[in-house]
Nucleic acid binder design. Structure first.
Length: 736
DNA sequence: GTTAAGGCATTTTTT
DNA sequence: ATGCCTTAAC
């Protein structure tokens, strides 16, 4: 058994896996077998050092990572049941584990047993209501900012009483919002994401016996993506470890890309200090990318000053050069990518799913999508709206939540008039006021208001029917299977009808999603005996993005942001939109730390590629409705030129200087983006954007050059015939 | 209670 | 350009 665990590990991996139990920091470069080390380390602890899976806690950031770790563990150790079953090991996300703790110790945590998790959207709505209660001007203090503030404070482990506002009106306002928001959560039994962590941290601090129990139980902690931990997460780990348990922290400072949401790279150094002595291992051998790709990645990241220092290397050959394509505009960029993917998959006998297009911001996907649709090449966009965040799903879930806990004001407000049942803003406001006055939930306030005849007959009727609806549903679901509950709720609440009546594809998609929700209920596998499946399902929905759905098996080209590409790998990778202002994003330019984070993001992007990396850059790009002329990203200029190969023909690019009037924009510079010498001979008298005449196709515009000498070709967009590639030698184009 | 019209911002994302 | 949200009019 032990042999399999230690087999096929390189020296550094072996050291990390097989060392004595101790505090260790594994600096794992991209593609260096990080998860492998983590999983083998766990297996080794169990089989060589006699740890029970019961004593091990492994924490990740995403459900996906947790799932992968669980799968690989059972692959390595076997999926047998019994006292040493891998199933008794806690493997989960920080939030998932914190939630589990709070569920188990709700009383000590000061929560109702059926507390609900508030997602970002619920949170925003709740804060909006807090604003109304406090009579705050949301133009002066944007609600989003308050949400950001509250989350930020919680991530730092701070409660309202910790905030010293002094004479700062902003702090004073935010503090009062935070305070009122906390009260609202308290009333409704609501817990937001940051609260899960903070609350479970406080749970331990306030209950030493409980803490001792968990400290004695979890003798070994393992943390993935350690560079992404924020202050509370770090404190949480530190408290849990105490001075009895050991920690293995695995991370890569060069891949820290979430500083903007509270992640602290410094936790790595802090860890070495707080958990001293710490054995540090560097995993620098890369098993993913060709040497050229790695050299490029190393060259870029070396421009960052604040690094722990690490340099990837590989046994693999140089591989192909990195292509650099200078596109005319974003359409041309998209067109080029489609073309390259078609050629590449054919040439290398690869699938579409082996190709990925990575970009800095979501808005870039549009032009790409259009080109893919036009060319009939299947694609899949990652990210975007998650299943459980869709309007119709949230509505249905709100009904389900009300059935679990009718004090849940967030759910109440969402569906009190959805579908519309004649309960207007005025009526709801009155209920809200009532609830506030009496310090009770809105549902209770509503019942009180009805019996006191506060509303007009019409409103009273509508309100009564709502209460009745919830009551009837509640009564009728006893003993029903989860999917029957969902089915019934969707139907009887009128949600299904409501969305069916919606016009266009939108309504149809929503109905389908609702059916998908019923489906999700059917396949849902409750884990906790103590909870009702409904309650568990509802909790789960909040913690689970619900992605990784069906399309996974389709053979589609993958499109995603650089952020969501972290942890993935693809044979062919395109980095699209490598332009100053877009990447690095202009929002990050003024701050040194932000710029370094952008550079790490670039490093992440480059290191996703296994065989071939293609970098694209558009000379002109439409953003927010107007044309932008950006220069090549500094990150590309940081790549040694001998690793790059420019795809575009080297011709002097001069375009008619017709700013604004021509949709082709104007020339900004001459020559190649890297500044090497140009070669105009291949395209005498022609330039991009130029009008030309062809004796068969008529008039058109030159949009692209390719090749040289006898094989020099141009792409022309003909007014009547569309776009065509023509070999210059034969086409006899006439410049206009 | 529904729809039309204007205002406004528009990096990145998990839980 | 686009979408999202608030506000004003039907």
């Amino acid at each position: 058994m032990q042999t399999t665990i230690l087999n096929n590990l390189n020296e550094a991996q072996l050291q990390a896996v097989s060392s004595e139990p101790e505090n260790q920091l594994v600096l794992a470069g991209a593609g260096s077998g990080k998860t492998r080390v983590l999983v083998h380390r766990i297996a080794f602890l169990i089989q060589a050092h006699g740890y029970s899976p019961h004593q091990i806690l492994a924490v990740t950031f995403t459900n996906k990572a947790a799932k992968e770790m669980r799968e690989r563990l059972s692959g390595l150790m076997g999926d047998y049941d019994g006292p040493f079953s891998a199933r008794s090991m806690w493997v989960g996300t920080f939030h998932g584990i914190a939630h589990r703790l709070l569920k188990a110790h709700w009383q000590e945590a000061g929560l109702p047993q059926n507390f609900q998790i508030l997602d970002t959207d619920d949170q925003l709505r709740l804060i909006k209501r807090v604003y109304q209660a406090l009579n705050l001007d949301d133009s002066r203090w944007p609600v989003k900012q308050a949400q950001w503030f509250i989350g930020g404070q919680k991530d730092e482990g701070l409660r309202p009483q910790h905030i010293v506002e002094g004479r700062d009106p902003f702090l004073a306002t935010m503090k009062s919002v935070y305070q009122a928001y906390e009260e609202a959560c308290e009333r409704g039994g609501l817990v937001d994401f940051a609260e899960l962590l903070l609350r479970s941290h406080e749970l331990w601090l306030k209950n030493p016996d409980l803490l001792r129990h968990y400290q004695q139980r979890f003798r070994y902690l393992l943390v993935d993506e350690f560079q992404d931990t924020n202050a509370v997460q770090y404190a949480w780990l530190r408290v849990l470890a105490g001075n009895v348990s050991h920690i293995t922290a695995v991370g890569d400072d060069d891949q820290s890309i979430y500083g903007w949401r509270g992640a602290k790279i410094e936790n790595i150094q802090q860890f070495e200090h707080d958990f001293s002595p710490v054995a540090v291992t560097r995993l620098e051998q890369n098993y993913r990318s060709s040497a050229n790709i790695l050299s490029a990645a190393n060259a870029v990241i070396q421009h960052n000053a604040e690094r722990l220092g690490k340099s990837l290397w590989t046994d693999d050959g140089d591989g192909e050069l990195i292509d650099l394509y200078t596109a005319f505009n974003e359409q041309d960029e998209a067109r080029y990518i489609v073309e390259r993917i078609k050629a590449f998959t054919e040439e290398h006998k690869l699938n579409n799913r082996d190709c990925a297009i990575l970009y800095r911001s979501n808005a870039q996907s549009r032009a790409l999508e259009e080109a893919f649709i036009r060319e009939g090449l299947p694609y899949r966009i990652y990210g975007g709206q998650r299943f459980y965040e869709r309007l119709e799903i949230k509505n249905a879930l709100a009904y389900l939540r009300l059935l679990v806990n009718r004090f849940d004001d967030a759910a109440f407000e969402r569906v009190i008039n959805t579908p519309t049942r004649g309960i207007g803003a005025k009526t709801i406001e009155t209920v809200r006021l009532f609830a506030r006055e009496q310090g009770c939930s809105m549902f209770e306030a509503l019942q009180g208001a009805i019996s006191h005849q506060v509303f007009s007959a019409r409103a009273t009727n509508a309100l009564k029917s709502f209460v009745e609806l919830i009551d009837t549903l509640k009564d009728s679901i006893d003993g029903l299977a989860l999917e029957e509950v969902a089915e019934r709720v969707i139907r009887q609440s009128g949600l299904l009808d409501y969305h069916q009546k919606e016009k266009g594809e939108k309504g149809q998609a929503r109905v389908e999603n609702l059916q998908e929700l019923v489906n999700a209920c059917r396949v849902f596998d409750p884990q906790d005996e103590g909870l009702s499946p409904l309650q568990e399902f509802v909790d789960n929905a909040a913690l689970d993005a619900g992605d990784a759905q069906a399309d996974e098996f389709d053979d589609a080209v993958q499109m995603m942001t650089l952020h969501s590409a972290k942890g993935l790998e693809f044979p062919l990778v395109f980095l699209a939109g490598m332009e100053e202002g877009l990447f690095p994003h202009k929002m990050s330019l003024d701050e040194h730390g932000r710029l370094e984070e952008e550079r790490r993001l670039c490093y992440v992007g480059i290191t996703r590629a296994m065989k071939k990396l293609v970098i694209c850059f558009a000379e002109s790009r439409r953003m927010h409705g107007n044309e932008n002329f950006n220069s090549l990203s500094r990150f590309v200029r940081e790549i040694p030129q001998d690793l790059l190969q420019e795809v575009r023909i080297k011709s002097t690019i001069t375009r008619p200087a017709s700013y604004g009037s021509s949709r082709h924009g104007a020339a900004r510079y001459s020559g190649s983006p890297l500044g090497s010498q140009s070669n105009v001979e291949d395209y005498p008298g022609l330039c991009l954007g130029q009008q030309v005449r062809h004796k068969v196709f008529g008039e058109g515009t030159i949009v692209q050059f390719e090749g040289q000498g006898g094989s020099a070709r141009v792409q022309v967009n003909f007014d009547s015939e569309g776009s065509k590639w023509l070999v210059l030698q034969y086409a006899k184009l006439q410049a206009l």
